[in-house]
Write a protein that binds this DNA or RNA. Structure first.
Lengths: 126, 126, 126, 126
DNA sequence: GTGGTCTAGACCACG
DNA sequence: GTGGTCTAGACCACC
């Protein structure tokens, strides 16, 4: 299990972590029922503050993605996958829509936006 | 000249304004040499604080997009258009690339990402 | 009689004009007793606001460099030259001292500052 | 780390601070990677408003001299020194050139300007 | 604790 | 009238 944190991304670190854990569950990298690294370990791995990990975990508990096994650690909820799969599409769709909207507002036409998309997709998908 | 400010966008208001002014110059809505609405007027139009407008102007001065005509107001730099056109592509490209990267990291394949893009583009481009 | 105004110099335009008129008197380009261009003409020549010229003239009257000949115009005071010569050295000395002081504060040694001075002098004095 | 702010200098306070921080990095007084005093502390030390410090910091971030460590504070960019060293020479050179240019325009010859420089350097460099 | 943003209002310099 | 600067204080997000 490996996450990519970009500290100067603009997006809060805890939120990056929340999204990536959801995506990992959606993708099947994290399996329902599976125990997750401890808060402290994960913080060490990612070189971030344990409180930040804690905050991400807290939010994920609130969304029934993670649950605490008292005294043992944190695990993925057994029924989290379906939720995460739909969330993945939703979360990515929101960002995608926001970019497209800004491009439209800036005066670009559909073809130009499509070209922008395809160039970047090609560049990144190797 | 009309800008759309979304106060609860996550993005700072002054930054939204900076981007939109650049895009307006790129698009030719703001013509090089043209005087821009005064700080106070623009603040009134957008229902935001004059200092917020000023902050946007200050940043745009630092990037040689705007220049102050002392005692007269603020105008678009004569050679700003080229810079703004390239910046528009760059700024939008960065956001687009970030979305695509996150989608890739989340396990989606190129077709799925393309589908996500096309759906949203179609929905928004009317 | 030709003055060089740099609108985006940081220094107020009226002050640039005040200094240059003083220097012109010191140098003998403006002769005591000589009539000076009218406010309006000078403003047109320099492409600045007549009020700005007016403000410079007002300050120079306060320092007994210029005097109004009622109904005829503005002339250089007959005894202005001596004052202007000494002012020239003083005004330039102040600016020179300020630069040197900042250079010292920034950690440069006397040799480095001298080198900075000589390079620029050489470059500009052709 | 000690800065000298002159409130009635003509130069804006935030700009004085920007220059002095750059010079401190150039001189090695501020080391790349080093955390800087917090905005609030620095404001207290200098007896100025925290927002004024913030404005200086914001500009220095835009020039890649400082960077924020989210939630921890502000530090000097690791590769800032080279930039600051060259900027120091450039910034001081600009002011020096401006003074020399004005002296030349005022009719002084190279020897007189040199004398003006040497007198002030001698006086200030003890 | 840190910095970031925004608002409000005062004052000034300039034209 | 214009913009520039500074102060003051509130609120927020993040760690």
């Amino acid at each position: 299990m490996r996450f990519e944190i970009e500290p100067n991304n603009g997006a809060p670190i805890f939120e990056q972590l929340v999204r990536q854990i959801k995506f990992a569950v959606a993708e099947g990298i994290l399996v329902p029922g599976q125990m997750i690294s401890s808060t402290r370990d994960l913080a060490k791995q990612l070189a971030i503050n344990p409180n930040t990990v804690q905050r991400a975990f807290a939010q994920l508990q609130g969304e029934n993605v993670l649950e605490v096994q008292r005294g043992r650690g944190v695990s993925v909820c057994v029924d989290a996958k379906k939720h995460c799969v739909s969330q993945r599409r939703e979360l990515l769709g929101e960002r995608m829509a926001a970019v497209i909207q800004e491009a439209i507002n800036s005066g670009l036409g559909a073809e130009q936006i499509t070209s922008l998309f395809e160039q970047n997709l090609k560049r990144l998908s190797r």
